[in-house]
């Protein structure tokens, strides 16, 4: 898997696929989810992320909104990576993702196909796009801990 993820063709296809067929897309009308509207980061991307956490485990994540390819695909991959993880596991993955975006050493293995965004740091104007959904889930998890 990791060798395949070094092939730019595969990475491109992955991003395209997550953009055209975003996973866990569309919001649910369910009060057991907490949600975050990410609209004040920039005046273009405008997304909402929802999460359902029970007993420290992420049961479900949903998202929707107006967003570019990178925002949509990175958020879609995030949902797949974090569903069914414990909060601690999720936080480790999120931390690794932000380390990667910041061009620092990170644990490749736990990021799986999200390493498709490992070169985003070379395009500073797109970093916000690649992190908007990840920031939302990070804040949701942190807020959930504070509330308990």
């Amino acid at each position: 898997m990791s060798e395949m993820l070094k092939d730019p063709m595969i990475l491109r296809q992955l991003i395209m696929d997550h953009y055209e067929f975003p996973r866990n897309h569309g919001l649910v009308d369910d009060t057991t989810y907490s949600q975050k509207h990410m609209a004040s980061e920039s005046c273009i991307d405008d997304i909402v992320v929802q999460v359902k956490i029970i007993d420290d485990k992420i049961i479900d994540i949903r998202f929707d909104g107006v967003a570019c390819t990178i925002s949509t695909a990175s958020t879609s991959m995030m949902t797949e990576l974090l569903i069914d993880k414990t909060r601690l596991e999720a936080k480790k993955i999120i931390e690794a993702y932000f380390m990667m975006i910041d061009n620092q050493r990170y644990d490749e293995a736990i990021l799986n196909e999200a390493i498709a965004f490992s070169n985003v740091y070379k395009q500073p104007n797109r970093i916000k796009c690649a992190t908007i959904g990840w920031k939302a889930i990070k804040e949701l998890i942190e807020e959930g801990e504070v509330n308990e």
Partner: peptide, 10 residues
């Protein structure tokens, strides 16, 4: 193309 846009970041 969408592909070319994506190629800029991978």
């Amino acid at each position: 193309t969408l592909e070319k846009c994506i190629d800029l970041i991978i």
